[in-house]
Amino acid sequence: MATVDIRKVRKAFGSVEVLHGVSVGIEDGEFVVLVGPSGCGKSTLLRMLAGLENITGGEIDIGGRVVNTVPPKDRDIAMVFQNYALYPHMTVFDNMAFSMKLAKAPREIMEREVLKAATILGLEQLLHRFPRQLSGGQRQRVAMGRAIVRNPQVFLFDEPLSNLDAKLRVQMRSEIKELHQRLKVTTVYVTHDQIEAMTMADKIVVMNNGNIEQAGAPLELYDRPANLFVAGFIGSPAMNILPGAIGEGGFVTEGGAVMPMPSTARNGAGYYGIRPEHMRLAGEDGIPATIQIVEPTGSETQVMLRIGNTPLTCAFRERITAGPGETIRVKPDLDLVHLFAGGSGQRLAS
């Protein structure tokens, strides 16, 4: 187990720079999720951590040792690949024991360690199978088993759940989280799925275009997104972000709707952000809005509304009986309104 310190790391492929000086500090035993859209550099950063990509600039420090020039095998890390990268010509046992076999470990130790990892993951019955004979979830577990057997200082996961179906993904998500709580090994996990990030992480690092937009605890990012990108990226359904300006009676959106402002409102707001679940049904004091689409999910009802020409998504705990074309009255929870600066899109302190 170890701390990981990424200091001003840059990465360029030829003349194209894909990471522009990224710094992340990871505590011992922490579960950190790197999240962002495709091409934001999160996988590249993970591969640099693993030693599979060269570091163009900056430093990576694992357990107090700068590893910029240390080859992958000496970094004491284990990685789970997106496609699992199981050796197809080896049995599950051989796959898991491969690193020990290379290190010329005695057979008894090999068997003991593999069995220990297999028991943790429920793979005891599958040790003599080949990867082709396993289901997606089992392969995923073998890939994790191979990592566990190494007993590394840091676990790296590169989008490990993206090849699984939705149900299995949820199950493996909790298994990985449980595994982390059990082994308490520092973990860096890459995903593009913000729900995975929210549910698993101790700390989320939101990346975009080779930069870190914000890093922090999941709920901190949810409650206080630092800028428009994080606001739109974290949370599902996504936050309503309405461009406009402060005007008469509140915030006037480009579509002409007037949204009420919190009392602590600052000048310079160019975007009005409100999460769908923070919209409330209102009485006569609410804003009249026309229903476009109603999507009941059982636990809540998502309603796509229009206030004038401004589209707005709301999620209500209440059941909505009104149908498309009808008008209802809604209002935002003023304590939970986010305001962002016009030009930069940065959060305005409230």
């Binding site: 992958p72 191979r146 190494r150």
Partner: peptide, 14 residues
């Protein structure tokens, strides 16, 4: 042969 197999082997110390 998938390049990730070589990467995995590299991390395994091969």
């Amino acid at each position: 042969i998938s390049p990730s197999l070589y990467e995995a082997a590299m991390l395994d110390g091969a």
